[in-house]
Write a protein that binds this DNA or RNA. Sequence first.
DNA 1: GCAAAATGTGACGACTAGTTCACAGTTTAA
DNA 2: TTAAACTGTGAACTAGTCGTCACATTTTGC
Lengths: 208, 208
Amino acid sequence: MKDATLSRREREKLWQRQEMLTAAIGLFSEKGFHNVSMLEIAKRSEFAIGTLYKFFKNKEDLYRSIIVKQADTFHTALTRALNEEDGEIEKLRSYVKIKGAVFMDNVSVVRLYFAETRGASFNIKAGLDKEIREEYELLLQKLTGVFAAGIQKKRFQKIAEPYHLAVSLDSLTNAFLHLWLEAPDEHPYPDDPDVILNIICKGLLVEP
Amino acid sequence: MKDATLSRREREKLWQRQEMLTAAIGLFSEKGFHNVSMLEIAKRSEFAIGTLYKFFKNKEDLYRSIIVKQADTFHTALTRALNEEDGEIEKLRSYVKIKGAVFMDNVSVVRLYFAETRGASFNIKAGLDKEIREEYELLLQKLTGVFAAGIQKKRFQKIAEPYHLAVSLDSLTNAFLHLWLEAPDEHPYPDDPDVILNIICKGLLVEP
DNA sequence: GCAAAATGTGACGACTAGTTCACAGTTTAA
DNA sequence: TTAAACTGTGAACTAGTCGTCACATTTTGC
């Protein structure tokens, strides 16, 4: 733990900061950046407005902190999933599984994350978008590599460009997460990753 | 044409309304609902602010008009694509093709449409979301029906639930449109619908 | 050609929300 | 104990936008 060497005061400030972030995450994910005021965040976190500004330069900075940290969590977990497993199919399975787990552990931020990564982001002036996108693109490249390797080793058929396959798998998992987000009971994210993977892995057409 | 029986004045008002909408579409799709002011829309459309309010109840109403009309265009075109063709595979091909065509004809609204249909919409208080979602769900049902029919006729293998297949195809086309939106030259939306369809239709795995 | 009706205008009122800052309260160290 | 440093506070300042409305301009009908 990195708190080990921190003074009591420093730990308290870190804790306060987290309180503010938690309050802000809840509000932003309910109503979106523009429909949440700093006063609301102050109220919910039980600090004064002025105190918020001691911790964050401004509203945008507060929002960025949330998104950047969360995007990092997501991308790190997924990159590790792709690194740790052996074998292309196992890597894909792990990707689908871990993505479900990590996203479902962070429901309230997922909406914000989607908003930022899907070009529908009109929240931040500029830059954040790019920042996250680059990390995201790196992850896609990693995934592309898995498909390319599978094809090269003749384990996969080249049914599409590796990059397109990567984008597709990412988009499919997003779609399932989106369904789950809307109606968790009606559309649970599948426990078995093959429910999603089969859509790519098995052929729909009867005759080849 | 429905203008046939309208007076010159009425046609002019319709035209003026369109001018306002066009200006608004451009601005909204560049900067999003909350980062565009009525004054800006007035300036760009070369009307006075007051005039905007003669045509639209308020800013939200203006935004709704754009989204609802566009969503309707999209859904109508796609539903027709699924109705007109014969044969399941041909229906799917038509869906992918028409979706590309219609969306690429309406670049600037596509971002807004995506924002509204993907749960990342924090623009409108409430309702619009639902309004569009229902139409969208109907389209998905139609698409589900195509997959279900194909499976029933033993033309398709049941690699996943028909509804999941529908969601998947929709999500894949969106992903390709998204790539194109970001970098039209680098990632053109494929002319041949099979580039997208193969991802579902052909099996990735070598041994079945 | 003219008065009445319809239409277009933009300054202005009312309000909201982001940010600042002087001060009060609290902790620290001698 | 006490003074200096630090921290938290929220009233007040500022900027900017939505939506209105009395008035100017244009169109219409006679």
